[in-house]
Design a protein around this nucleic acid. Structure first.
Length: 859
RNA sequence: GCGAGAGUGGCGGAAUGGCAGACGCACUGGGUUUAGGACCCAGCGGGAAACCGUGGGGGUUCGAAUCCCCCCUCUCGCACCA
């Protein structure tokens, strides 16, 4: 009898072994196929949560599997360490963000090590390390030189709770992505990255990302939002100044009867200046700008506007179009001005009705006749042009081209594309981030910090009392400097960079984290990049994943990387959730304790709670620490892999965890109760072995190897891989290994047990490592070769063939695996169990699906 | 509103044109045990049966959870995009 399964002892033993032997350290090796596996690095919030456990377990399985398959696997880990939680926590607990961050890193690193992940810890870095952000500042300067980093004043998203600016990608439904507070618009000077310069390429090369989930590609495509249309200039009456609009419907130009401006459009105030409208327009604009994004963009917000007092002229009809300011016009899309065609745009229609503006039909449907006086809604479908001079009678889809061409000829407009994507505002008015390396000099203006003066180090002594400006602004030693150009006193930029900047290039830095001569070591980067498999949450579909793609293209154009795209394959794993049920009598229940809405214990109806994402904000959180303390890391890993396929949400179940633990004990006993016998097993010649149960076991072993390999390699379906191994283990329990002392019997048993350990080792490495060694193997299971299946052994001699009559299952026969088609058909037709179904009937067709079934069609 | 994905036992989930419900959880019975737990074995969609069953309805096919059309529900993303 072997000793009992003690996960803690085994796990700490092997974790120390791996650490001492630097088992997971990698270096470039041109003789091996490289494989770069990366999971999205964590923010050091304090402790790891179940989402981390799941994400990193999935990654670890792939890393270990690829290593066993002979690849040179890069599997690094680090910390996305700048950011506001550190600053907020520091203010609250009167510590320093750096101290808070680094102590969290220590804590979480211990937790990750306790999970037994196969990271090359020698490559670890935190993005708040000076050596890291120094190169980021250097990159900023390169981008500044090329016009990719620039400063501009504009309306930006402002989160009053975080007291900082947010990029468009960081506003979710009008709320701050981080704190869920309402976002308002504020006019600010800030630094931007010209991501729009790469808009076309970012869109086009989405097509090359065949290893990405379609969902993410679509989200990015929509986010970039390229639309084709026409730019048209309308001259403002009594001036030479034009208002330019972007429209995707140039075919409706003859029906444009007024102009709508976004409240943010500077023309709004300018045009009304000096008119009797001025005060009213100003009041309206102020009212709209004060509204937060949720209110302003809500569905049921009434369309409102105000006349500016000015007119512009429709270039093709000469119509005198009143210029309005309208609350539904967006400054950030197109030009912030819209030509309004009430007959053919529902919003304009409603607006025109409200303010008594003319509705002019210029497109008629084929089957009816629109009358502006009786229309109840805009007509937005296809039709033929009317009231449109030489374009009358054309199909509107053709007229789009024709009118655009006409405008171009007359110098009144041109073909244009418009992107929804906006430049990335990166200034953040907070302390805990990478300083922007810019100096402002009264004489020389904006001066970049010379590269040799980098890094611009964050000052340590700082007051973090935040008042809507960067705390750095109140730190005299930081702000006051001398101009690098003229040497006179000058001031530093005090905003810091968005933390998404750090995560936009960290993946490349892992190739050469120690490199001190530049941002990246070309040689090593060339070996490791791109990331072959990236794994992380879907929540980064347009933020991080878009920025990282942008940076990769910038780095490429700077000659620093050789790839166009950073991540060849992307796996987006689902969230960890917990469904909550409550019985008034028995308290909290698990899903398996409920039968048709009733509590299985007391039969009373239960209250069903929401399925909630496990996060700090909900109370029903499972702490991985406790899970490990109770069952060990292997059980935690196994449960995460077994309960659901990776891309789906994982529903937590305490009972499911127990089941995982039970399976590991079952594996443990299988080996430890037969150690002596297993160690006696010798290599045998399998030729001529014909004991049925031995053959069956070997068949199952090889079938399992094939199934598990396929599930991991092509689909990441670890749940079905595990269930396949469970089946093999069940069969091993049924196998009577002590029936006789035949060497073939023990050899088949050992072969199967070894397969179990090898196949499970990427998923539950500790227990497999321990048992692997108890079987007398040396070295680590991590570097043992992945087992190979023999198709001849996996193939059955006899197979079951299902017989269908008119599509219904009517019988089954056993046939030799290599039986000829005609014989199988004949056996099917003569088989007793189906006679009653085919007798006295005309057989029309007999279909054979090799290895599966015979389908008989009768009449 | 637009786009994407999903809907299968009491529960998590298998099966992607070929035996629906693998594997696990829960449950039931048996074995073992002084007893309980643990463990081992068996059963486990509905129905007495014929049969009926993969959100609902239609279609293609010898054969549909799987493919096509319509509808319903849920989740996610975008959303006054001119």
């Amino acid at each position: 009898m072997g000793k009992t399964y003690n996960p803690h002892e085994i796990e700490t033993t092997w974790q120390s072994y791996w650490e001492e032997h630097k088992t997971f350290k990698v270096a470039e090796d041109s003789n091996k196929e490289k494989f770069y596996l990366l999971e999205m690095f964590p923010y050091p919030s304090g402790r790891i949560h179940m989402g981390h456990v799941r994400n990193y377990t999935i990654g670890d399985v792939v890393a270990r599997y690829k290593t066993m398959k002979g690849c040179n696997v890069l599997h690094p880990m680090g910390w996305d360490a700048f950011g506001m939680p550190a600053e907020n926590a520091a203010i609250e607990s009167k510590t320093h963000p750096a101290q808070w961050t680094y102590s969290n890193i220590d804590m979480m690193k211990q937790q990750l090590k306790r999970m037994g992940f196969s990271y090359d810890w020698d490559r670890e870095f935190a993005t708040c390390d000076v050596q890291y952000y120094k190169w980021e500042q250097w990159l900023f300067l390169q981008m500044y030189e090329r016009g990719l980093a620039f400063r501009k004043k504009s309306y930006v998203n402002w989160c009053d709770s975080c007291r900082t600016v947010l990029a468009n990608e960081q506003v979710e439904g009008g709320l701050c992505w981080r704190c869920k507070a309402e976002v308002s618009q504020k006019e600010l000077q800030q630094w931007c990255f010209r991501i729009t310069q790469y808009a076309d390429e970012l869109l086009k090369s989405l097509d090359t990302l065949s290893g990405w989930p379609e969902r993410v590609v679509t989200m990015q495509r929509n986010w970039i939002g390229k639309s084709y249309g026409t730019e048209i200039a309308f001259t403002i009456e009594h001036t030479d100044e034009p208002i330019t609009v972007f429209t995707t419907r140039p075919d409706t130009l003859y029906g444009a009867t007024f102009m709508s401006l976004a409240p943010e459009n500077p023309l709004a105030l300018k045009l009304s200046e000096g008119t009797e409208q001025a005060a009213a327009v100003r009041a309206f604009v102020e009212k709209v700008l004060k509204q937060d994004k949720t209110v302003r963009c809500s569905d049921d917000l009434e369309k409102e506007g105000i006349f500016t007092g000015a007119y512009c002229i429709n270039p093709v009809t000469g119509y005198r179009m009143p210029i309005y300011v309208a609350n539904f016009v967006l400054m950030e899309y197109g030009t912030g001005a819209v030509m309004a065609v009430p007959a053919h745009d529902q919003r304009d229609f409603e607006f025109a009705q409200k303010y008594g503006l003319e509705i002019k039909v210029v497109i008629q449907p084929e089957d009816s006749d629109l009358n502006p006086a009786t229309m109840t809604a805009a007509f937005e479908d296809e039709g033929r042009l009317v009231h449109s001079d030489q374009f009358n009678g054309q199909k509107n889809t053709d007229a789009m081209q024709a009118i655009t061409a006409f405008l171009a000829e007359q110098g009144l407009g041109r073909k244009a594309v418009n992107f929804r994507l906006k430049d990335w505002g990166i200034s953040r008015q907070r302390y805990w981030g990478a300083p922007i390396p810019i100096i402002y000099c009264e004489d020389c203006g904006t001066v970049p910090v010379p590269a040799e003066q980098l890094p611009v180090v964050l000052p340590e002594k700082i007051s973090l009392e935040v008042l809507g400006r960067s705390p750095l602004a109140d730190c005299a030693e930081f702000v006051n400097t001398t101009c690098p150009t003229c040497g006179k006193p000058a001031q530093r930029e005090t905003d810091t960079m968005d933390t998404f900047v750090e995560s936009s290039w960290y993946f490349a830095r892992y190739a050469c984290p120690d490199y001190d001569k530049g941002l990246l070591d070309g040689k090593r980067v060339r070996y490791w990049m791109p990331v072959d498999q990236y794994i992380g949450g879907i929540e980064h579909a347009v933020m991080h994943l878009l920025y990282a793609r942008f940076f990769t293209k910038v780095l490429r154009d700077l000659g620093l990387v050789h790839v166009d795209e950073p991540f060849t394959n992307l796996l987006t794993q689902g969230m960890v959730c917990m469904e909550t049920y409550q019985c008034e009598n028995c308290g909290w229940l698990y899903p398996e304790e409920i039968n048709q809405g009733n509590c299985t214990r007391c039969e009373r109806p239960v209250q069903i709670g929401r399925t909630e994402k496990m996060s700090k904000s909900t109370k029903n959180v499972v702490d991985p620490e406790k899970l490990i303390a109770t069952y060990g890391a292997d059980t935690a890993r196994l449960f995460c892999l077994f309960a659901a396929p990776p891309e789906r949400d994982l529903e937590w179940s305490d009972k499911g965890v127990e089941g995982s633990y039970r399976f590991l004990q079952r594996v443990w006993r299988l080996v430890t109760e037969h150690t002596a016998l297993l160690n006696d097993a010798a290599a045998v010649d399998w030729h001529g072995v014909d004991e049925a149960d031995v053959k069956a076991l070997r068949r199952k072993t090889h079938q399992t190897i094939q199934k598990v390999t396929d599930d991991i390699e092509t689909r990441f379906h670890f749940n079905t891989a595990i269930s396949a191994v469970m089946e093999l283990v069940n069969q091993l329990y049924q196998f009577d290994v002590d029936k006789d002392t035949s060497p073939v019997r023990t050899a088949a048993f050992r072969e199967a047990v070894q397969a179990v350990l090898l196949l499970l080792s990427p998923m539950v490495p500790h227990i497999c490592e321990e048992l692997w060694h108890q079987l007398g193997n040396t070295g680590t299971v991590f570097t043992a070769a992945w087992p190979v299946w023999e198709s001849a052994t996996a193939r059955a001699d006899e197979i079951e063939i299902v017989i269908q009559v008119n599509g219904k299952l009517r019988g089954k026969i056993m046939v030799a695996a290599d039986a000829p088609e005609a014989l199988i058909k004949e056996q099917a037709l003569t088989c007793d169990s189906i006679q009653q179904w085919i007798a006295a009937k005309e057989i029309i067709k007999v279909i054979l699906v090799p290895g599966k079934l015979v389908s008989i069609v009768v009449k």
